[in-house]
Write a protein that binds this DNA or RNA. Structure first.
Lengths: 206, 206
DNA sequence: AAAAAATATTGAACGCGTTCATTTTTTGAG
DNA sequence: CTCAAAAAATGAACGCGTTCAATATTTTTT
C-alpha cells in the first residue's frame, strides 16, 4: 500500500516531468525557466530541485527513453536475414535517425550533447556516454552478425569497423542537430555516401 | 601613426586576452570569473564586454590559433612521399592529437565543443565548425594525394573515406577530452586500431 | 582653446539556475 | 489523540554572466 507521502511524491514527480517536457517543446529548453516549470507543475522552485538534481537532469529521462527504444528496434533489425552489407547498415542507421526526433527536438539534443561534453563527471554525462557506447556496440554486433552469415569478409575486425561507422553516424548526427535547415533525408543521404565505399570494401567477394 | 585611442585599445585587448588565458589555465574556464579577468587586466567588467562579445569568445582566439597551426603542419605531412596508407594516416592524425594540448586544456576543449554544439547560430560556433570542416577536408586531401601516387586504390571515394575517418578522429577526440585519465598515446592506440582495417582495405594491391 | 561630437569606460542592476535555513506536513510511538 | 522526529516544501538569497544608462575621455570642429 502506497503511503500518502509516496502517492504525493509520485504525483508531483509526474507533474514536474510533464510540465518540463511540455515547456521544453513549446518554448525550447533554454527559455523554459525552472520557475515556469515549477509553477506549471504546481510546486515551488525548491521542490523542483528536490525531485531533480538540476535542469539538465530533466532531459536525461527523455534521452534515455529515446535511446532505449531505438536499441530495442536495432536488435530486431540485426536479427533479420539481410543479404547485403549496405542494406543492413542503412536500415539500422536509418532507424536511429528516424526515431531521433520522436521525443526530443534538435535543441534538446544539442543541450544534452553539450552537457555531456561540458561536464563529463556528472551522472548526466555518464548516463549519456553509456547509452552512446551501447549504440556503438550494436553497430559492431550488426557487422559480426553479417560476418557470421558470410556477408562480411572473415578478415574484417568488426569492432574496429563498427566503432568507425558509429562514430561517423554520431558525428553526422551532431552536424544534423546543429543545422536547423538540415532534414533527416539529407542526413541519411550524406551518411550513405560516406559508408557505401566501406560497405563495398568489407563485403565478401566484393 | 596610431592614435592614443588605438594604442590604449590594443593594449587593453592584449591585457584582457592575457589575463583570460592565464586564468583559464590556472583555475579552469568555469572558475575564471569575468570579474577576475577584468580585475587582472585592470579594466571594468563592462570594458571586458566592450572587447569580447562574451566569455566563450575568449576561447575562440585560442582554438583558432591551435587549429591553424595544425592545419599548416598537416599540409607538410601530406606533401611527404609516404609509401603506406597507414603510415601516412597515422602521422597526420598523430600530429592533430599531439598538437591539441599546446594552447588548450581538456577543459577548454570541452567548453569550446560544448558551446559550438549548444549555440550553433553564434559566430563562435560558425568559426568552430568552419575549422572542423577544413580539418575534414585535409584528411580527404591526404587520401587523394595517396591515390594520385598509386598508394590508394583508384576506385575509392576519397571524400567519403576521408570524412568517415575524420569524423571518427573527431569523435574519439571528444571521448579523450571527456576523460581526464586518458592520455594521448591511449587515444592514438584506439584510433589506430579502428583505422588499420580500413587502411588495409583501401590500399592498392591490399 | 573652447565647444561639440564621437567613442570608450564604468558598475549597478538584471535574469536565471541553484542553494539552504526555515516552515509545514506526514508519520508512528506512547 | 499527542507529540516528537523525520521528510518534504518553500521562497528569499546567492553567484555569475551579461546589459545598459550614466559618466568620462578623446577627437574633431570652429
Amino acid at each position: 500500500m502506497p503511503s500518502l507521502r509516496a502517492q504525493k511524491k509520485a504525483d508531483k514527480n509526474r507533474r514536474i516531468l510533464e510540465a518540463a517536457t511540455t515547456l521544453f517543446r513549446k518554448v525550447g529548453y533554454d527559455s523554459a525557466r525552472i520557475e515556469d516549470i515549477a509553477e506549471m507543475a504546481g510546486v515551488s522552485v525548491g521542490t523542483f530541485y528536490n525531485y531533480y538534481k538540476n535542469k539538465g537532469d530533466m532531459l536525461m529521462a527523455t534521452v534515455s527513453m529515446e535511446v532505449e527504444e531505438v536499441l530495442a528496434a536495432g536488435d530486431v533489425i540485426i536479427a533479420k536475414k539481410h543479404d547485403q552489407v549496405a542494406n543492413a547498415l542503412f536500415e539500422l542507421i536509418g532507424k536511429y535517425y528516424d526515431h531521433s526526433l520522436t521525443y526530443l527536438s534538435k535543441e534538446m539534443w544539442r543541450t544534452a550533447m553539450s552537457l555531456s561534453i561540458a561536464q563529463p563527471e556528472t551522472p548526466f554525462s555518464k548516463r549519456y556516454t553509456a547509452l552512446d557506447h551501447r549504440l556503438s556496440k550494436q553497430v559492431c554486433d550488426l557487422f559480426r552478425a553479417l560476418q557470421d552469415r558470410g556477408i562480411v569478409r572473415k578478415d574484417v575486425d568488426c569492432s574496429a569497423i563498427g566503432e568507425l561507422v558509429f562514430n561517423n553516424v554520431n558525428m553526422m548526427f551532431i552536424e544534423f542537430v546543429k543545422d536547423e535547415d538540415m532534414d533527416i533525408d539529407g542526413l541519411k543521404d550524406q551518411v550513405a555516401r560516406q559508408n557505401i565505399p566501406l560497405a563495398h570494401l568489407v563485403s565478401q567477394t566484393g
